[in-house]
Design a protein around this nucleic acid. Sequence first.
DNA 1: CACATTTACCCTGTTTCAAGGGAAAATATG
DNA 2: CATATTTTCCCTTGAAACAGGGTAAATGTG
Lengths: 79, 79
Amino acid sequence: MQNSLADIILFHRKRSGLTQQELAELAGVGKNMIYELENGKISVRLDNLLKVLQVMNIELDFHSPLWEAFLREHSDAKR
Amino acid sequence: MQNSLADIILFHRKRSGLTQQELAELAGVGKNMIYELENGKISVRLDNLLKVLQVMNIELDFHSPLWEAFLREHSDAKR
DNA sequence: CACATTTACCCTGTTTCAAGGGAAAATATG
DNA sequence: CATATTTTCCCTTGAAACAGGGTAAATGTG
């Protein structure tokens, strides 16, 4: 277990008690997409990945030194 | 500016002083991909997005209540 | 204002993802 | 252990992303 996307998805699906088929239907993607996601394929389409993540309440965010500095500078409305 | 993926990418590219063309070459993707990313297209391939993010040192992470709880339980080696 | 660079957006051919069916292998459950 | 369920993985058929070329529009710079 090294925190890969595949692991995260598998973990959540199992915890949710869903089969690949069911998750696929809830997310509106094909059953093979789920299988491939859980098996390390990363050439999936981002919109499809997002649909799957939403179903399981997984949030996705970006960060970088530059971006954090920027956010800090611009959230100083109250600071 | 509402923190969309497009915004984050544009922001970083500008800060890096790169043109779309240059970023595309560095990331090993087509120039149109960059243009589309910066203009809100989300049906791009995840592997291509990751290449672009890497060039600009943008990290991507996932979180959810379930996952956080799990990590907390399993990182108590020293706690 | 003239000129250079960059971006927006078209088009074309190629590649590959996506969906869904199917069926053996693996796993769970009575 | 028998049987139901789930997962793995093959196949086929669209559909759409991809790269890269081209050019007008926009933007930047002396």
